[in-house]
């Protein structure tokens, strides 16, 4: 990692990170609000009316707060947010600068190409971490506002961290795509395809009649939400997301090292 590059790019991202943190916080807060008695009854009614849709999104009831969170946040919303943000950030940090010459400016310095790409990858990781922490803080705030402060906060934290770690390979793929694509538009298309593929495999795998192994083709198969509620050791499985992401970003760094600018 190149500290000066990391800090400079981080400063350029502050506004984006602030907006994302606010949105994530509100998502966490809203998810707890949906656990209040009035909203729960409406949610149950809705899930009975459109069972296909709720099953597709991963909603499996609200037996307790963490299970409720699995359905309303970790089933679809947050995975989609993580993947989409990884794509837009990789485009912003890698593909667009390749196109407009900023990456060439980065190369006019005594740094290898690989570490430049890996430094930008760590910013993708940082953004995912900020999103998951903001979601957790939103949940904590929601618990104090709507539920009188009674909840298993550690379970919520484990789930947030678990999903974040599981989503990191998506960031690695996006950095790889952005570093290897000939231009911004092709990177955008390819990245969009990856987003579609991940979500397109994840969602149907929950439906009756569809093979469950489809979900294991996505990085989110590393996230065992239900088990994380009680078992910290399941975080180790999610933590595999980081080395996998590093390997994928490494492929991006390798492709970038060989390409013309």
């Amino acid at each position: 990692m190149i500290p000066s590059l990391f800090m400079f790019e981080l400063k350029q991202l502050l506004r984006r990170l602030f907006v994302l943190a606010m949105v994530s916080f509100l998502l966490g807060l809203a998810a707890v609000w949906l656990y209040t008695p009035d909203m729960l009854s409406k949610l149950r009614l809705w899930s009975e009316e459109v069972p296909f849709f709720t099953r597709l999104l991963g909603y499996a009831g609200s037996a307790n707060l963490p299970v409720h969170m699995m359905g309303v946040l970790y089933g679809f919303l947050l995975p989609a947010m993580f993947v989409a943000n990884a794509q837009t950030l990789a485009l912003r940090l890698v593909a667009r600068p390749i196109g407009d010459g900023r990456i060439a400016q980065r190369l006019a310095a005594p740094h290898r190409r690989g570490p430049i790409i890996l430094t930008l990858f760590w910013l993708v990781v940082l953004e995912a971490l900020i999103i998951s922490l903001a979601v957790f803080l939103g949940q904590v705030a929601g618990v104090f506002i709507f539920l009188g402060g009674q909840a298993d906060f550690l379970a919520l934290l484990r789930m947030s961290m678990g999903l974040m770690l599981s989503s990191l390979p998506a960031g690695g793929v996006m950095v790889w795509v952005a570093a290897a694509s000939p231009g911004r538009i092709s990177a955008m298309r390819m990245g969009g395809l990856v987003v579609g593929l991940f979500l397109g495999l994840l969602l149907p795998s929950r439906l009756a009649g569809w093979p469950r192994w489809l979900g294991s083709l996505t990085p989110f198969s590393l996230f065992k939400g239900q088990e994380l509620i009680a078992d910290t050791s399941k975080l180790l499985l999610s933590a595999l997301g980081l080395p996998i992401a590093l390997i994928l970003a490494g492929f991006g760094a390798w492709a970038f090292s060989r390409r013309d600018l």
Binding site: K11, R15, D100, G101, A104, Q105, L107, P110, H111
Partner: peptide, 26 residues
């Protein structure tokens, strides 16, 4: 060997690409 050479190379592009939100000083 670009990374070995570049410490002793100064370069200015014809149209330098600079982050739009960055100030000249930063």
């Amino acid at each position: 060997k670009r990374h070995e050479i570049q410490r002793e190379v100064a370069y200015a592009a014809a149209s330098p690409a600079i982050e739009s939100r960055a100030t000249g000083d930063s």
